[in-house]
């Protein structure tokens, strides 16, 4: 319990100056730091076709295993490929996979979560399935699915979605169940509104804050898990560099050419840290209730 609760009407002071959410977000340090970190990574990855010095797969045997230097800031790999290009292009793929997972989470997590949270009849069955899926350790489940479907980008996306959709659905279900009991939902019902209108007009718009927060974390987890899957050889085809694949490739030379694993590792860490900060900031501003009090 925080001291603000003791003040009796903690919301009052906040209500006196109702600044738009954007302004409050920009005043949140975590959010701004996260935005800068993640934004930088995302823009660089997006611009990869234009800013990479070389084709990421162009081999130049005479430049094998170059340490980071002025000419090759991130060094080169065993085939003399420029790591700057490979990390930039790898970021494209990693972020693309993350984005796909986020989108599938947004669609299926919302549909399943809303169905379970709103229609009591569906709640039991849907949540039992979700519980069953969530009973497996996330990475193990992803490995199982990826192994069953064979390595490809689609496989990774499907595997990670199966892992994270139940979690997103649970988050959404919880907020739907809270909003469902709000008086304005009762008022809509009393006005004669049907389930569709109540769900889409009243409930879902008010569940967006926790959903956005959740999706920012899913994005981060997806990028991490993609790296794990790729590292284990269950990711995208090895010719396409994703960060996970870069680390997997570099693993064999970790003693001689540590930069091959360190550089993509730092890229992943930066992205995930950025997304987590972003998510924390969003949560603090959009939905302070989700904050776990110390």
């Amino acid at each position: 319990m925080s001291a603000a609760d003791l003040a009796g009407r903690p919301g009052l002071l906040a209500r006196l100056t109702p600044g738009p959410a954007v302004r409050r977000l920009l005043r949140n340090r975590a959010f701004v730091a996260g935005l800068l970190l993640f934004g930088t990574v995302a823009i660089l990855a997006l611009l990869a076709p234009w800013i990479s010095p070389t084709d990421p797969n162009r081999m130049a045997v005479r430049f094998r295993f170059r340490e980071p230097s002025w000419d090759f800031p991130f060094g080169t790999d065993n085939l003399g490929r420029n790591m700057v290009s490979r990390v930039l292009w790898g970021g494209r793929l990693s972020l693309e996979i993350g984005l796909w997972v986020v989108m599938l989470n947004a669609v299926f997590g919302v549909v399943l979560g809303a169905a379970a949270g709103y229609f009591r009849r569906l709640d039991g069955p849907l949540m039992r399935i979700a519980d069953a899926l969530m009973a497996f350790p996330a990475v193990l489940l992803a490995i199982g699915i990826a192994a069953a479907l064979g390595p490809s980008v689609a496989t990774v996306v499907i595997a990670l979605s199966v892992v994270y959709v139940p979690r997103t659905a649970r988050v959404l279900r919880a907020s739907v169940m809270v909003v469902r009991e709000q008086d304005y939902v009762q008022a809509a019902r009393a006005a004669g509104a049907g389930d569709g209108r109540i769900l889409f007009r009243h409930i879902l718009p008010n569940c967006m804050a926790p959903l956005i927060v959740q999706l920012s974390f899913v994005f981060a987890y997806a990028i991490l898990s993609e790296a794990v899957l790729s590292f284990l050889g269950l990711g995208a085809a090895p010719t396409t560099p994703s960060w996970g694949i870069l680390i997997a490739e570099g693993r064999s030379y970790i003693r001689e050419a540590a930069w091959l694993t360190v550089v993509p590792g730092v890229a992943i860490a930066t992205t995930v840290l950025g997304l987590n900060l972003l998510g924390d900031g969003l949560r603090d501003v959009l939905d302070p209730r989700l904050k776990v009090d110390a």
């Binding site: 925080s2 603000a4 003040a7 009407r9 009052l12």
Partner: peptide, 21 residues
């Protein structure tokens, strides 16, 4: 009434003002 400062006064006496007060 609410917003009159009566609760804040009590918290000040107790030394229990919230962090932003």
């Amino acid at each position: 009434e609410s917003g009159s400062g009566k609760s804040v006064t009590a918290l000040a006496v107790m030394g229990l003002l919230p962090a932003n007060g």
